[in-house]
């Protein structure tokens, strides 16, 4: 999971560096010289590789297990975070977390998909694939934010809504549809960042926002490249072709005017530099919040509707 195929030459070099470092001290000076050279080679390679990632490679980076996830962001940039649980109907869904907190000194409602970082937490958070309860909790929190006139921040990172039997029985489609509707109806600013994978309906359910940003190597798509390939090419092996055709990268999304901006990732991707990435996201969120505050409740709702209405028109 954490080893990317296209990074092999880089990883090999990094392996050699560690090897050299572990060699004992008699020729220490000579080695440090060698290590320095190799390290500059690594950073050159990283820059070269990451400046021209193919869409299929971006899919891999976007899904990388070491990227910062929802709780990493919240812990680093939100103070007084107070998680709130439950949809008040059926259950608490740990795939979509949310609560109240203070961001940049301002009260916010923050929510997002949490994928987990090891086997236990991944299972606990269902790999970030929410059930209807997750979306109904999101609706509840958004309506609360609306009631108290508090801005909403959403961090999107999901392969999609969970395709399970119970999820269908309890109205997965209705839960997503209603979430989009609530996003459109609230009279407070909503700011979304796609921090990894923006998977279809499960993503748009909390990303129907006034401002939508994507991290440089994140993806946003109507269907997974694998799913698309197996339907249109009749083979999942064509996933790289589908990834290219779907125009799912942050750069494509910006070009097609479907998002508002791209947040640069440090060289080598968010998975290599968690703290820096989180800081970049925080900087963008601060700027967007500043731009949207203060807001006219009716006007902000209207302008959100207008924004989505205009999408795709020539």
């Amino acid at each position: 999971m954490s080893q990317l195929e296209f990074e092999k030459p880089i990883l090999e070099l990094e392996g050699k560096i560690t090897e050299l470092r572990n060699m004992s001290g008699d020729s220490a000076l000579h080695i440090s010289d060698e290590v320095g050279k190799m390290q500059s080679k690594v950073s050159k390679l990283l820059t070269a590789t990451y400046s021209k990632l193919t869409p299929a490679q971006k899919v891999q980076v976007a899904r990388h297990g070491d990227r910062p996830h929802f709780l990493d962001y919240v812990n680093a940039m939100v103070t007084d975070f107070t998680p709130l649980a439950g949809d008040r109907n059926f259950a608490e869904d740990q795939a979509l977390l949310g609560g109240l907190g203070r961001f940049n000194g301002q009260s916010v409602v923050i929510m997002g998909h949490e994928r987990g970082h090891d086997t236990d937490t991944r299972l606990k958070h269902n790999f970030g694939m929410a059930r209807p309860e997750g979306y109904r909790k999101a609706q509840r929190l958004m309506e609360m934010a609306d009631h108290f006139q508090i801005p909403i921040i959403t961090l999107v990172d999901t392969a999609g809504a969970y395709p399970g039997r119970g999820a269908e029985e309890r109205g997965q489609a209705q839960a997503i549809a209603k979430s989009i509707e609530v996003c459109l109806n609230v009279k407070v600013p909503i700011i979304s960042v796609i921090i990894g994978e923006g998977g279809s309906g499960g993503a748009i359910a909390i990303a129907t926002a006034d401002r939508v940003y994507m991290l440089e190597h994140s993806i946003y798509s109507v269907i997974s490249p694998e799913g698309c390939a197996s339907i249109l090419w009749r083979s999942a092996a064509n996933a790289p072709d589908a990834a290219a055709a779907l125009k799912l990268t942050a750069q494509d999304m910006k070009e097609n005017k479907l998002i508002d901006g791209i947040i640069a990732e440090p060289i080598g991707g968010a998975q290599r530099h968690k703290a820096e990435t989180i800081e970049s996201v925080a900087v963008q969120l601060r700027a967007a919040l500043k731009e949207l505050t203060p807001w006219d409740p009716d006007a902000i709702k209207k302008s959100r509707a207008k924004k989505f209405l205009a999408m795709g028109r020539a």
Binding site: N185, Y220, S221, I223, C228, D252, N256, G312
Partner: peptide
């Protein structure tokens, strides 16, 4: 959604809800 229009078709989800609203 129509896959051949990528995320543009995804955006028809909020768009159609704006319409019925």
């Amino acid at each position: 959604a129509r896959m051949q229009e990528g995320a543009l078709s995804l955006m028809q989800m909020p768009r159609s809800i704006v319409a019925v609203n």
